[in-house]
Design a protein around this nucleic acid. Structure first.
Lengths: 362, 362
DNA sequence: CTGAAAGCGCTTACAG
DNA sequence: CTGAAAGCGCTTACAG
């Protein structure tokens, strides 16, 4: 049964929630016997304040429990130290982990963090403007089409950093951005399966982040490159979505084809669905089919069979993106943004050598 | 390989990022040939404005791309429509899904949403004060000890709503709060296993949210009640953590005991670990052991065996909590907060009748 | 229906 | 080293 609590003080109509008003800079000044300007100097750490004066002001601040009004500060100074992240999703592993990294970094730096989800139905420009109105800067997560579109539409004067898929070789994003080399990681994962004796590797794709262009995304490209480098004609990729259900659909079809002995998936959720479909079809993993995922989501090490996958340092990307934004927001010298870890292939139970057992007679 | 992009306009030293200043209320007034006060009336939808005047102001607003400065509005009006959520975690299913619901609801209402993670190392009071300084209200996620402690320390004058575990029967939280009846859900899940013929049900617990009190949390209590109602002495609960690794540790021990034929877990991650441990020990699920989880995380339907679990409407809780906060922030009449769905037992492959096969001879 | 004044709580120059 | 003034962009009463 669902239940809701009551309101604390009962009355809905009372616009004055009791409690005295917060102390202002002038209250402190009066208590310390100085002008409020001097209080401003103290709370901003200005050098030119006599030691004893500073002490007196500090004492008054403590006593009154003064905290500088952030809104007034922002309005008067024109600086807003805050970040709002624009993303299409907050729960899928890649997004959630990136968000986690952003939160960590913003917390360490003392920046408030805002989050706004953008959906395909939204008026992108309105959403961006509203987020920018908050002051501070934007970090946009551009892993998918809508996210990438949002990034494209951020006005040039708005401080902004992005975390994106690996851009095409030689190309560099228009905006400050961070990414991991998932193209190379996909290539390496595919090459690994080939080296295991598989004739080819099938690919279950995540949706592309680019619009109508030729690109199918870095992961698909890396997969294709590895195949072509081995003289193998890439089979048609499948997959229409991000989640396990989409993986299941794609997996059902692949499972029917006895020639399929190795599958690379665009993320671990897809791989989970593929595994399930393979199980339903009675095909063993890794004996009959090898499966490799992407991202190393938390559950991937614990499912059975445990999932071979490419570990991605999304948290690191989030932290780095925050660093990139901060250099635009804060003129003071600051520690360089931490460097994310490289993607790494994690070998587990779901992949193995091609078994030369059964011939291709379905 | 990790790579970072460049900054857009090159120069780090340029404090003026080009672009003209945003239009103010006065700019609009001048363009429309009225006083800025009239502009204020128009943007606030005041009734007493001549239709033609309104139109002229609107036109000027469009032309200049005016957007009301949120900071100035907040300072002058004293109202801040924003929420910041205080949580100990953003990625575990229950937390992430609650956050998702909060984001949805805040977006629908046009409220900016902030997120701040609190850790045991933090000075709670400082963190809370900083979050409250942002203006607006707080929503605290009190599923665990640190979250519950944070909730306790929110000053009385700060608008605040919480999402918590089910409180002890008859007790009601000090603050406006929402919760689901997971006590009853745990009772029902346990009763279901008993009805399936299992002699007893073991419990792998999530950490308790209360401090040193007697309570082990509603889920543990519901489990215990169901056992006692059936005249079964509850075995000692296990589990020391939230994640699959903790479940694996607990599962290893339970797997050794051949008397164990049914296990209820405090969440799906723990259940995943338990499943893995059972697999390693060669005990089949559900033939030898039935396992039931809690929460219905996204992957639970796709693992093998698929997980019987209690579905929790965390998103609904998030939405409801936002509604509870909004009534404190906004005096205008508003639609009542949506009611979350009841917890529901979802039967899948991991649970089944007690097999009377082997006797208890280990 | 519309304008001129005062103020939200702070900061940034300007004077001593 | 410290104070008095003006202003950030808006709103809320007060006058017409």
């Amino acid at each position: 049964m669902h239940v809701t609590g009551h309101t604390t003080s009962g009355s809905d109509a009372d616009p004055h929630p009791g409690q005295q008003k917060a102390a202002s800079i002038r209250d402190v000044a009066q208590a310390a016997g100085v002008s409020y300007q001097t209080v401003s100097r103290v709370i901003n750490g200005h050098p030119n304040v006599r030691e004893e004066t500073r002490r007196r002001v500090q004492a008054a601040i403590e006593t009154l429990g003064f905290r500088r009004n952030a809104t007034a500060f922002a309005l008067a100074s024109g600086v807003t130290r805050s970040v709002t992240v624009l993303t299409t999703n907050t729960v899928l592993h890649g997004y959630a982990a990136t968000l986690q990294g952003l939160e960590e970094a913003s917390r360490a730096a003392g920046y408030p963090l805002g989050v706004r989800v953008v959906t395909p139905e939204d008026d992108l420009d309105r959403t961006i403007a509203a987020a920018a109105d908050t002051g501070g800067g934007l970090v946009v997560i551009g892993f998918d089409r809508v996210g990438a579109a949002a990034l494209d539409r951020v006005p040039a004067h708005v401080p902004c950093a992005a975390v994106v898929e690996a851009p095409p070789p030689g190309r560099t994003p228009d905006r400050p951005a961070v990414w991991a080399d998932d193209r190379e990681a996909a290539r390496a994962a595919t090459a690994h399966l080939l080296a295991l004796g598989h004739d080819t590797v099938h690919y279950v794709a995540i949706p592309a982040s680019t619009g109508t262009r030729r690109s199918a995304g870095p992961r698909a490209e890396g997969w294709r490159q590895a195949l072509e480098a081995a003289g193998v004609v890439p089979p048609a990729p499948s997959g229409k979505g991000w989640d396990a259900q989409a993986g299941y659909e794609a997996g059902k079809k692949l499972a029917r084809n006895q020639d399929v002995t190795a599958i690379l998936c665009g993320n671990d959720d897809l791989a989970l669905g593929v595994l399930r479909a393979l199980h339903h079809a009675g095909r063993r993993v890794p004996e009959d089919v090898s499966v490799i995922g992407f991202d190393d989501a938390p559950h991937s090490a614990f499912i059975t069979p445990s999932l071979t996958t490419v570990r991605m340092d999304f948290q690191g990307l989030g932290r780095a993106a925050f660093g990139l934004l901060r250099t635009q927001l804060d003129t003071e010298q600051q520690a360089p943004a931490p460097v994310p870890a490289e993607p790494a292939l994690i070998l587990r139970e779901s992949s193995g050598p091609r078994q030369s057992s059964g011939p291709r007679d379905t």
